[in-house]
Write a protein that binds this DNA or RNA. Structure first.
Length: 293
DNA sequence: CACTTGACCTGTCCGC
DNA sequence: TGCGGACAGGTCAAGT
């Protein structure tokens, strides 16, 4: 369930840990997780040095000195975990971790560095992928060509959110928030959290939202994403950061995975419903389906 | 064309 | 305790 805050947390960790390290070996035992031909891996990955680590929506981009980049999508259960050669697991870990000895049964790709440290791409459900591409061609990937604006970028304001959402004015607001071509990086957790914050029912039609609702939805979306980054993301089951640590946002969540509990705003019981084919958490008192217009 | 559903996978949980 | 089935949800492809 890595969404923008989780991928950003991984990016920040990798950006601190990887640049300057030289890759000496790479292996994968599940071709769909890393489909590049072994010859290309030998030529453009092995021997290269990591230059930088960037993010676009939910995609990680690791730039290499070979003028190639590793492009990574974690999908639902992907992890990128770095281990120093001499790390003794457990010691000095201030937050709990889901990851013990690596590689483990979920490890799909292992990248070894010259200093003995290693980077593991773990992915229990095998939906995620990593691929090696010429850096100049990265932005030609279909996903990156079509992905919408970054919701935390400086020029993204409530009017921009309204304009993007209105591209699908006849859809439900939840389905539209999850559409990566509308806005980049939002997934199920933060869509539910932001809609609760804005008191907007997820099944409302975009075209029925009032100006005020777009404005509040923007404010809530930005603040929930910022808080989640500050808390290191959300660990529901699998997610960990680049050092194997869990995120703590879910202990601050207001509705996500809180069905049966009281709404922190009004005390009514939070319900789990289905919208756009996804499990969706709402307060039925705060979030009404009828138009506010 | 706009929108919904199914496929891709595996681990977990629930009811019988 | 074992087992079938539902469920978890990001994205793409296929279907309505």
């Amino acid at each position: 369930m890595p969404e923008l805050p989780e991928v950003e947390t991984v990016r920040a960790g990798l950006a601190r840990l990887l640049p300057g390290r030289r890759i000496v070996a790479a292996e994968s035992d599940w071709p769909k997780s890393f489909p590049n031909a072994p010859a290309d891996v030998q030529q453009f990955l092995v021997g290269a040095e990591v230059l930088d680590v960037r993010r676009r929506a939910k995609v990680l981009l690791i730039g290499l000195s070979s003028r190639y980049s590793l492009v990574i999508h974690l999908k639902m259960t992907g992890q990128m975990v770095f281990r120093d050669h001499d790390v003794r697991f457990g010691a000095g870990h201030p937050t709990p971790s889901l990851v013990n000895r690596l590689p483990d049964s979920s490890t799909r790709v292992t990248i070894a560095f010259a200093d003995g440290s290693r980077l593991f791409f773990n992915d229990q459900r095998k939906f995620g992928w990593m691929r090696l591409l010429p850096t100049a061609e990265v932005m030609n990937l279909d996903f990156l060509r079509s992905v919408g604006p970054e919701p935390l970028s400086a020029n993204f304001d409530w009017k921009a959110l309204r304009e993007r959402l209105m591209r699908r004015r006849n859809s439900t607001v939840k389905a539209t928030l999850l559409d990566q071509t509308v806005v980049g990086g939002i997934g199920n957790i933060y869509a539910d959290e932001a809609l609760w914050g804005a008191r907007v029912h997820p099944a409302m039609t975009v075209g029925d939202l009032s100006t005020r609702q777009f404005h509040v939805l923007y404010d809530e979306l930005v603040s929930v994403l910022r808080l989640a980054i500050k808390k290191g993301g959300s660990t529901d089951r699998n997610y960990v950061d680049a050092e194997g640590r869990m995120g703590s946002y879910l202990s601050f969540a207001r509705v996500f995975r809180r069905e049966g509990q009281s709404c922190p705003r009004c005390g009514h019981i939070i319900q789990k419903i289905r919208v756009a084919g996804r499990g969706t958490h709402i307060c039925p008192h705060c979030q009404k389906l009828r138009s506010a217009k």
